[in-house]
């Protein structure tokens, strides 16, 4: 009798496995029942459709923005309203920008790797190439998804990290050399008028040579 029970149990477990069932832990089961947010599994779609589309429609040429910043009477709040986006006055302003320029230098010493890029009007700005992005400009410039879709700071943080990871995935396999010309579509964040163009660090949604 014992043998029969054992055989039946083994047969049951093997059948479950062969049918594609997977035994999960209690924690995994709980997470499967209540995913932290469905948006976390839609990163590619949100990035390629919403974010890139929004940036294409609203990006300001970086040289034009630098010129506006250089006005000693520049009103940051007004510039943000006109050229940037933020979910509330309490957070950094995020500016969607486009840039055509020439790579002056490549910094891969830091994990927050950057390209120093000279713009057509001679300003020098930075473009993030990772492997650490270090801010959430791409998440925060996005209009279709906001903190209110999460109501959880940690999950919203995770969403930002996944957006950055997707951005870096698009850069995989690309090597950069000084002197090369590049085109960038991306965003940067700032609390105030940047002290100099070199303080501008653009997170790229698209970076093409």
């Amino acid at each position: 009798m014992k043998k029969v029970v054992m055989l039946l149990t083994t047969w049951g477990v093997v059948s479950l496995l062969l049918c594609g069932f997977r035994i999960v832990t209690k924690e995994e089961f709980k997470q499967l029942q209540t995913p932290e947010s469905p948006l976390l599994s839609q990163i590619a779609e949100i990035f390629d459709r919403d974010l890139t589309g929004q940036l294409r429609d609203s990006a300001t040429d970086i040289d034009d923005l630098i010129e506006l910043f250089s006005d000693p009477n520049a009103d940051f709040g007004q510039l943000c309203t006109q050229y940037g986006y933020r979910q509330s006055p309490d957070i950094q302003c995020n500016f969607p920008v486009k840039l055509k320029g020439q790579i002056k230098s490549v910094n891969t010493q830091s994990r927050r790797g950057t390209l120093s890029v000279t713009t057509p009007k001679g300003a020098e700005v930075k473009v993030k190439i990772g492997p650490v992005v270090g801010d959430t400009a791409l998440r925060d410039v996005l209009k279709s998804v906001s903190y209110l879709d999460f109501n959880d700071q940690t999950v919203y943080g995770e969403f930002g990290e996944k957006i950055n990871a997707y951005c870096l995935k698009k850069l995989e396999g690309k090597a950069f050399e000084p002197g090369e010309s590049i085109e960038v579509l991306g965003a940067f964040s700032s609390w105030d008028v940047p002290g100099s163009p070199s303080m501008i660090q653009i997170a790229p949604a698209e970076l093409n040579k």
């Binding site: 509330s88 309490d90 957070i91 903190y147 209110l148 109501n151 700071q153």
Partner: peptide, 8 residues
């Protein structure tokens, strides 16, 4: 307007 408001 909003129930949850975050301050930096």
């Amino acid at each position: 307007e909003k129930e949850r408001v975050m301050h930096k």
